[in-house]
Structures are given as structure tokens and as C-alpha cells.
């Protein structure tokens, strides 16, 4: 399980999980679950396009994901945010389907890109993935305070010179880069689980933002490691384990919060 070709998988999955934990904290804080679900589908279309044109997959993933993020960010400013997100999402999926229908390996390619393919990680992909992860984390660290401020009290942030809309676009682009590199491993549809379940669970265990971020990373790592091991042992798809384990983590978080409330009944509500 840890030898040879699996080494790459473990390394990449670890990087992906750590990143998803951090970015996911802000996805949850900002209530950006829907964009976080939509943008990876842009990456799906990108991978399909790269596949068709014989280009570098990571390039296609990145370009399309960033394009989807900018589209959602700009169009969402005028129209209704959720409507724009939904439509951009299906447009990207439909484009992906179109591109794949032009290529020969339709079915396996769709499946791998949407639901992930653990064994598909090559050594040459390691370096770009690690590099992009560092870039994303650095961007989050750089934006940490204004991003937090504009997520928590947007009216005050605006009055203090933090432009909410620029912050939103910047965050969506980071989200896009983060998802682009993760799509080949966990798939377009399941990176989302990793960005929602662990951070949402972490919120139930702590009141401090930095602790919540670290906890969110830890839960994401545990989820991914357990998913890889289970997938390796059972031969079932990794996506299934990532999806259900993330939901399970969230369930435990909710239960913990409820139990804590029942023990120390809050006087102020």
C-alpha cells in the first residue's frame, strides 16, 4: 500500500488535503459552498479540453477553473449569485461532456475526472502540485486578515477600505487554483466534500479561528488517508470514501456541539 506507485498518491493526497482544509475554512466562513462546488467543474471542462487537444492537463485545469471563478465572480455581482453559479456550473459540465465526446476514451475519462483516480498520479506531477499548494497557502496567509474581516462583517470591511468584491474575486481565484490541482486525484465532484465536511466539523470543536483552521486540516488529512487506505483495500472508488467520510465528520461535529450545549446550557441565545 505504501510502496512504488502508491507513494506519489500518498504525497499528493496529503498536500491536497492540507490545502483543502485551509481553503475550506474560508469557504465555510464565507458561505461559499456553492461556488466551491461549481469551480471544480470548470476544472473538469479544462481537463477534458486538455485531453482533447493533447495539452498539459494541469494547464487546462488551471485555465478553466480560473475562468469559471472569474465568471462567477463578475456575473454574480450583477445578477443573483446562486443563479449565476448554478448556470456556470452546468455550462462547464456540459462543455466537459462535449470535449470528452470528441475524444476516444470517453467513459473512463469522465469517470476519473469527476470522481477521482488514486492511481493516476505520476512523478512529474508532484512538483507542480506542491508548487501550486505553496502558492495557494501563501495567498491565504497574505489575505488572512482582510479576508476574515470581509467574511465576518462585510459592511465594516468596506468602510475600512477592504473592497469586498475584489476580496471575493481573489478568494475565488485561490479556490480555483486549489481545486485545479486536486481534480485529477479526488475528482471534480469530491474536492468539494473535502472543502466542506472537515472545516464544518472543525467549527464545532473550537471557538478560535486559528485552531479551527488547524483542526480542519487535521480532519481533512485523516479523511483522505483513511479514504486511500479503504479504497486500496476494497478496490472501491476513493470518491465514495471521501464523500461519505466527510459527511460523517460533519455529523460527529454536529453531535458534539449538541452534546456540549446540553451539558452547559447557554444562558444567552
Amino acid at each position: 500500500m505504501f510502496s512504488g506507485f502508491m507513494t506519489n498518491t500518498w504525497v499528493v493526497a496529503t498536500v491536497v488535503a492540507a490545502l483543502a482544509g485551509v481553503v475550506g475554512f474560508f469557504v465555510v466562513l464565507r458561505g461559499s459552498a456553492f461556488p466551491a462546488h461549481a469551480i471544480p467543474n470548470g476544472a473538469f471542462a479544462g481537463a477534458a479540453a486538455a485531453n482533447l487537444l493533447g495539452l498539459n492537463a494541469l494547464l487546462g485545469l488551471g485555465v478553466f477553473a480560473v475562468f469559471a471563478a472569474l465568471g462567477i465572480g463578475t456575473l454574480g455581482r450583477r445578477g443573483r449569485h446562486d443563479v449565476v453559479t448554478a448556470l456556470a456550473l452546468v455550462l462547464m459540465l456540459a462543455l466537459g461532456a462535449l470535449f470528452l465526446s470528441r475524444s476516444t476514451e470517453y467513459e473512463p475519462a469522465i469517470y476519473a475526472l469527476l470522481f477521482g483516480e488514486v492511481l493516476g498520479v505520476s512523478t512529474t506531477e508532484l512538483l507542480p502540485v506542491a508548487f501550486l499548494a505553496v502558492v495557494c497557502i501563501a495567498a491565504i496567509v497574505f489575505m488572512y486578515r482582510p479576508l476574515t474581516l470581509s467574511s465576518v462583517v462585510p459592511e465594516i470591511a468596506e468602510a475600512r477600505g477592504v473592497r469586498s468584491h475584489r476580496m471575493e474575486i481573489a478568494f475565488l481565484v485561490v479556490l480555483a487554483v486549489a481545486t485545479a490541482m486536486t481534480v485529477p486525484v479526488v475528482g471534480a465532484l469530491l474536492i468539494f466534500s473535502l472543502m466542506i465536511g472537515p472545516p464544518a466539523a472543525a467549527r464545532s470543536f473550537t471557538d478560535r479561528p486559528p485552531v479551527a483552521i488547524i483542526l480542519s486540516m487535521a480532519i481533512a488529512l485523516a479523511t483522505v488517508w483513511a479514504a486511500i487506505a479503504s479504497s486500496y483495500a476494497s478496490n472501491w472508488p476513493i470518491g465514495f470514501f471521501v464523500g461519505t467520510m466527510s459527511a460523517f465528520a460533519y455529523g460527529i461535529g454536529r453531535a458534539w456541539a449538541a452534546w456540549r450545549r446540553s451539558r452547559r446550557p447557554a444562558t444567552r441565545l
Binding site: L29, F142, Y144, R145, T148, L149, V152, G161, R203, D207
Partner: peptide, 19 residues
Amino acid sequence: MPMRARDLIGLGLDGHRFG
């Protein structure tokens, strides 16, 4: 939201700055 009263007050000090 995992944020204490003191965390929010701290954001008032430098919440608009990067880093």
C-alpha cells in the same frame, strides 16, 4: 462561526492589513 468576542475586536486593530 468559530470566533470569540476578543478575536473580532482584534480584527478591528489591523483587519484591513494583509498577512
